[in-house]
Simulated scan of single mutants.
Amino acid sequence: MVTVCEKDQCAGCMACLEVCSKNAINIKDSIKSYNAIIDEKRCINCNACRNVCQVNNNVDVSKPIIWKQGWASDVNIRKKSSSGGAAAAIARSFVENGGILCSCCFSQGEFVFDFEDDINKLARFSGSKYVKSNPKGIYKKIKQLLQSGKKILFIGLPCQVAAVKRFVGKRYEEKLYTIDLICHGSPSPMLLERFLNEKGYNIKQIGNIEFRSKTNFALKGKRIRLEPVGVQDLYTYAFLTCMDYTDNCYRCKYARLERVSDISIGDSWGSDIKEEEKKGISLVLCQTEKGMDLLEQSKMTLEAVDLESAVASNHQLKHPSKPAVKRDKFITLLQKGKRFDLSFFMCHPKVVVLKQLDRINSHLKNGGGYEGISYSISIVEK
């Protein structure tokens, strides 16, 4: 097997697929890892795939020049966002000023990237995505739009930002604005599809998926929680405990304070603004003058934050996530075709039993909701 980058270290940025003129690249997802495999019969050894690969090549990184915590001034944007709504606020002001957003959204059963220049349609990009997204098909279009003089704001994971910058090149970087999301790691989309299927849902027939949200979690409309209020589903638990990321995430070269983008956004964990925590507070690191312009235009409410405390509360600003102790066993069981919940039980039976008790206790409680952030999957039917 000949691969574009080191075996099992592909991040799935898909840039190599677009740069190959002979369609000689195929991405293989084994749940445990991604690999960009080269079809040697089609390959003409031009090395375009290896040259664009952000795993093989370094991209310029910079230390933050300012660091803040804050939230969108628009109450509705903040309420609908996973955290403080920083990404949504910046995206809205950017589009209002004539730019085009390129970011991730859920479409026809996949988390893919799309473009938008209508502020009334930006809500589809909101929310956290606890799964590996697919940027296939965006690179050439981004470059074409930049060549035509358009301003593009790309919001994605650090590896995806690096891939876009490698593909575009420095010639067109002036009109390219980038935001990276401080990332724990991401699992194969095959895991999410299997998990939902085992719960009786076909991912292709779902209107949307929410991995975390801030609201009163009573059932409304066609929104369905996979677990009762206050109970975390096992997919979310596995994600938050670093149980199921692909191999490359545990060696991520972007998990550091020096960042690849104009702005980096995450959660301001352990904020000293306690009265705002339940509403969501974003951590914002700005590396460039372009990033400063974006923040100024967004009219966000920004407050001081201690950088040392922010880094201590976000390990991804120091080092990659460390695999859970039973991670390899869990992934092996899944690869053998075991059900998601059973695989998890075989690794952590006590956790599953405790969650069953939580489920029972939740059903015994009287109605009501929960004010704050919920880390559990909800689906919206079409």
Rank of each mutant, 00 (worst) to 15 (best):
K63I: 06
I65V: 15
I65A: 09
I65N: 06
I66R: 10
W67D: 10
Q69I: 07
G70L: 12
G70K: 15
A72G: 07
S73Q: 12
S73H: 11
D74R: 11
D74E: 12
V75I: 12
V75Q: 08
N76M: 04
I77V: 06
K80P: 01
S81E: 12
S82E: 04
S82P: 01
S82R: 05
G84Y: 01
G84C: 07
G85S: 08
A87P: 04
A89V: 05
R92F: 03
F94T: 12
V95A: 05
V95Y: 07
E96K: 07
G98V: 02
G98F: 03
G98D: 03
C102H: 04
C104Q: 05
C104L: 03
F106M: 10
S107Y: 09
Q108L: 09
E110T: 00
V112D: 00
V112N: 00
F115P: 00
D118K: 05
I119H: 02
N120Q: 09
K121T: 13
G127A: 11
S128E: 11
K129S: 05
K132L: 11
S133R: 06
P135I: 07
K136I: 13
G137S: 13
I138C: 13
Y139R: 03
Y139M: 02
Y139C: 02
K141N: 03
I142N: 01
L145I: 06
Q147Y: 06
Q147A: 13
Q147V: 04
G149Y: 00
K150M: 01
L153W: 04
L153I: 05
I155E: 14
G156K: 02
L157P: 00
L157F: 00
P158N: 02
P158S: 01
P158L: 01
Q160R: 02
A162G: 07
A162Y: 05
V164N: 08
K165V: 04
F167A: 07
K170S: 11
R171S: 15
R171L: 13
R171D: 15
E173S: 14
E173G: 02
E174H: 10
E174Y: 06
K175M: 03
L176N: 15
L176R: 10
Y177A: 04
T178Q: 11
T178N: 10
D180V: 02
D180P: 04
D180A: 02
H184V: 01
H184T: 01
G185F: 05
S186I: 10
S186R: 03
P187L: 05
S188R: 08
M190G: 12
M190H: 10
L191E: 12
F195H: 14
L196P: 14
L196V: 14
K199L: 10
N202K: 14
I203M: 14
K204C: 15
K204R: 15
Q205N: 15
Q205H: 15
G207I: 11
N208Y: 05
